[in-house]
Computed example of a mutant assay.
Amino acid sequence: MRKKTVSKNSQNDGVIRIISGQFRGRKLPVKDVTGLRPTTDRVKETLFNWLMQDTRDATVLDCFAGSGGLGFECLSRFAKQTCFIELDRQASEQLNTNIATLKLTNATVINGNTLDILSHINEQAPFDLVFVDPPFRKDLAQPCCTLLEQNNWLTSCALIYVEVEKELDFSAPQGWQIIKEKQAGQVLCRLYQRNK
């Protein structure tokens, strides 16, 4: 699934490629971290076709950022601001390095446990576009979406992209409507719109 490249630090490190926008074609290094599952180019192309009119000027939250592929794609497409949350320290450091490489001033990284962070009331501006793409088979998507809904993380008409294993029994919070859905192999991709 992941393209591999040899680096000075690890033969298992990889790269992600930005597929469109101002950084189209740029390749960014990714640490080889347990559970990290960069979204494939094919799924990214589908997702960003869905979001074609929705990334410019959006405030974006990438809840399980990993490689940062989804958040960087939004930044390339002129999102107003993107916040990455990532538990793994090495992956977080790589996100900060990639932000510096692209000379971005509208991106931040929070190194920490997503569910712990979302369990606090968000006192900043809520987000227009949120990505929930957790490591598989850890039952993180459902509680993540519940916390997003409960704790002022979402604008009234926020778009929420959820990527889970297809066999997972996932149900979205009340008031979230599926507007797009696709299955790609073992992965189920859904785009919801919040109506509050």
Rank of each mutant, 00 (worst) to 15 (best):
T55I: 09
I16D: 13
N113K: 11
L148F: 09
A158N: 06
M1S: 13
K103G: 07
T82M: 07
L47G: 08
C144S: 14
L36I: 15
K80R: 10
P135K: 07
K182P: 03
V15T: 14
V43M: 15
A125M: 05
W176S: 04
V132I: 13
Q53W: 10
M52T: 09
L28H: 13
Q94H: 07
Q81R: 08
V60E: 02
L75G: 06
V30G: 05
A58V: 05
F48N: 10
G69S: 13
G25L: 06
K44E: 01
T46H: 01
N122Q: 08
A125W: 04
A107M: 02
T108N: 07
C189Y: 12
Q177R: 11
F136G: 10
I99F: 03
P126I: 02
A107K: 08
L140T: 08
R2D: 09
W153A: 08
A172Y: 02
S20C: 03
R89T: 14
A184T: 14
Q193M: 04
S20F: 04
Q183M: 11
L148H: 08
D62K: 07
I18P: 09
Q186C: 03
K103A: 15
D169A: 15
S76I: 05
P38L: 12
T82E: 00
I18Y: 03
K27Y: 03
T59C: 04
A91W: 02
I160T: 11
L95H: 12
D54Y: 12
G185F: 11
G69L: 00
E86K: 00
R42D: 05
A79T: 01
A158S: 13
Q174N: 14
W176P: 05
N12D: 12
E167D: 14
L104T: 00
D32Q: 11
S67G: 11
E181A: 13
N151V: 07
K196L: 08
T108Y: 03
T146W: 06
K31C: 15
M52P: 02
D62C: 01
K3E: 12
T34R: 12
R137W: 06
D54W: 09
R77V: 00
S92E: 06
N151S: 06
P126F: 03
Q177D: 10
N111Y: 01
Q193K: 15
V43Q: 04
R194W: 08
K4D: 00
F170Q: 07
G21Q: 06
E73P: 01
L188E: 13
I178G: 03
Q11V: 13
I179M: 07
